[in-house]
Computed example of a mutant assay.
Amino acid sequence: MRSVAAHSSPYRLADHVHACHFDGQVVLLDTRRNKYLGVGGAQLAALSRCIAGWPVTSQDQAPPAKHESLDALVKPLLDQQMLTAASTSRQPALVLDEPLESFDSWHPTQDPSNWRDLLSMAYCASLTAVWLKKRCLAEIAISVRRLRLKEPSGQVETNPEHMRAAVASYLRLRPFLFTAHDRCLHDSLTLVRFLATKRLFPRWVIGVRTRPFAAHSWVQSGPIVLNDVYEHARDYTPILVI
């Protein structure tokens, strides 16, 4: 394999790989394989020398390991197709507001839950179950993006009261269909699909934490966490935002 020049950045993360930096390490999410990879120590500085956009600032970097060549560090990532040529463009990551508020499901609304919402939720929950059984996260992310693209220009709903009414209906009806306990990904994707039927498009988020390692998913509109308490969401660093 050709040696990587220390002063160049010939690679970038592939489009299906997402990264975040916290607690002295970089966590990578390979959405094609639904796997996480942690990179820490001297490898952080070494990889920043050859991967464009590596999420580590200079003050966070430790001296590169002398006994490990850049080839040895990069080759496993290339073999798993987690890197691509830096000359190709990557879609900018979406910016997520800091979670500051939890949704209040008991806020009074003028549009109470009805049987149509229940049927719609059941349909969305069933499709989500199929997604999670047969698709990887990369394919699911594409499908979530397409939900918004299907809407004609100018037809996206932006009224915050409509969002509040729709989410309140979802949370009231959810116990009739499934429990969200330990099923955060299914719950979040079902909520995203349900809101899309009402032309509402909040952010779908996957976050990670360490000590111990854990991943969590939630739905967020601006600074408001829609299907979790915001204090819990703040424990996680977002790695994927759609």
Rank of each mutant, 00 (worst) to 15 (best):
M1Q: 13
A5R: 14
A5Y: 10
A6W: 14
S8E: 14
R12C: 10
H16I: 02
C20A: 12
F22K: 12
V27G: 07
T31C: 11
V39E: 12
A42T: 15
A46I: 13
A46V: 05
R49W: 10
C50M: 10
A52M: 11
W54I: 10
P55Q: 12
V56L: 11
T57N: 13
T57S: 14
P63V: 06
E68K: 15
L70R: 02
V74A: 07
V74G: 08
P76K: 13
L77P: 09
D79H: 01
Q80T: 03
M82N: 01
T84A: 10
A86H: 03
S89L: 15
R90I: 04
A93M: 11
L94H: 14
V95D: 12
P99T: 02
D104G: 00
H107L: 01
N114V: 10
L118S: 07
L118Y: 13
M121K: 08
S126V: 09
L132V: 10
K134C: 13
K134I: 09
R135K: 15
R135Q: 12
L137S: 15
A141M: 08
A141Y: 08
S143V: 04
R148C: 07
R148D: 02
E151L: 06
G154E: 03
V156N: 11
E161W: 00
E161V: 02
H162D: 11
R164L: 03
R174K: 03
F178G: 02
A180F: 02
H186A: 00
L189S: 06
T190Y: 02
R193S: 15
L195T: 00
L195S: 01
T197K: 08
K198N: 15
K198Q: 15
R199N: 14
R199K: 13
F201I: 11
P202C: 07
P202Q: 11
P202R: 13
W204Q: 06
V208G: 07
V208Q: 07
T210P: 04
R211H: 13
F213S: 10
S221Y: 04
N227W: 00
R234Y: 04
D235A: 11
D235C: 04
P238Y: 14
L240Y: 15
V241D: 12
V241M: 06
